[in-house]
Design a protein around this nucleic acid. Structure first.
Lengths: 190, 190
DNA sequence: TAATATACGGAGGCAGCCTCCGTTTATCAA
DNA sequence: TTGATAAACGGAGGCTGCCTCCGTATATTA
């Protein structure tokens, strides 16, 4: 009868994070088919360790996605004190494009048989994401930098659509960021 | 200097077709990750034969997709003489749902790095598909069975959207067919 | 019916998937 | 500090899939 659980081992948490970091890189570069052994190698960790932390390919990709979204939400909070609200929005959208990159890989994996778990995760994270961007938008509108009819939904769905409209390739990110900036310019009050 | 080429061997064409048929089944059942060796086995053909006909996974899936579309176009022609134009349309849409199933698997494969070849193929086939459905729709409108403001684009894009909106699963096809029928009922003139 | 272009099949080498378990190490109680 | 031990590590090994290569089989043609 142990009531107080031991603190998780420090190497375990460290390795978990290294795996997510490595997976994020390989996922962006090599698509959903990226080799899990390569991920373990890149994280400098045994393949057994990878499988202990993430029993399935999907579990790993979900963790990567969740991690990215959490970072994005934190970034939104941090940017709320930026002096130029429109610029804050731009910085945030650029980070969002990175998420689309991750999401694309995740979708490739889940395309055929999305599990209950991943659907729940999607629903939860979309809500939080929308909440985060909503605050950034309000501030930009309040400061008079952008048109007042812009909504958080506009931004999110546009960024996603722009990301998916362009086929994946070496210049993908650059090109998407370019059109995102054009869109942002259109939102500004001249 | 041979000017007249030999006729292609009969076993070659037969095997090619068996491979496409097997790939179609496994693609629908197991998603884009389906094993090519399993496809060869299902077609009762050596793995070498598969690779001779389709050097890459993508080549095989493209062939399946093209094959499906061609059949769909032929079906449309055949249905043009059906006595009940609305029913003809329904039959055709049900066949189209099968295509979405195939396309979904193909998209999974191509999601990350669509090649030039597959983009060209998509463009060509979409055009021909639209042409085929356009004729069926005109006839159904002319016969007074369905509302006159329905367009071929409506039908195609709706069928696609309905297919993608519902997550893949064991009952996928049944459920999609159900909502397609509801949509069709809505188009009818009472 | 013989010659031959064409196609077939599967062995084999390599890589990734995943499990299992002997070894190592961080935590905690004394 | 230190010893006990729960927790985590890593990678060998068995399996499956990918793809190539080439000896064998056969459809076509003259």
């Amino acid at each position: 009868m142990e009531s107080a659980r031991r603190k998780p081992r420090s190497d375990a948490t460290r390795n978990r994070e290294r795996l997510i970091e490595a997976a994020k890189t390989l996922l962006a570069g090599g698509g959903p088919g990226a080799s899990l052994e390569a991920v373990a190698r890149a994280a400098d960790v045994g393949i057994g360790t990878l499988y202990r932390h993430f029993p399935t390919r999907e579990a790993l990709f979900q963790a990567v996605y969740r991690h990215e979204v959490e970072q994005l939400i934190e970034l939104a909070s941090a940017l709320e004190v930026h002096d130029a609200p429109a610029e804050a929005l731009r910085l945030w959208l650029h980070a969002l494009v990175g998420l689309v990159e991750t999401k694309r890989g995740l979708l490739g994996t889940l395309a055929f048989a999305p599990t209950e778990g991943s659907k729940t995760m999607y629903a939860e994270l979309s809500g939080r994401l929308q909440e985060a961007v909503r605050r950034l938008v309000s501030r930009a509108i309040a400061s008079g930098a952008i048109r007042s009819d812009i909504t958080a939904e506009d931004l999110l769905s546009t960024a996603y659509a722009l990301g998916y409209a362009r086929p994946a390739g070496p210049d993908w990110k650059m090109q998407v960021l370019r059109v995102v900036d054009i869109f942002l310019d259109g939102m500004k009050i001249r």
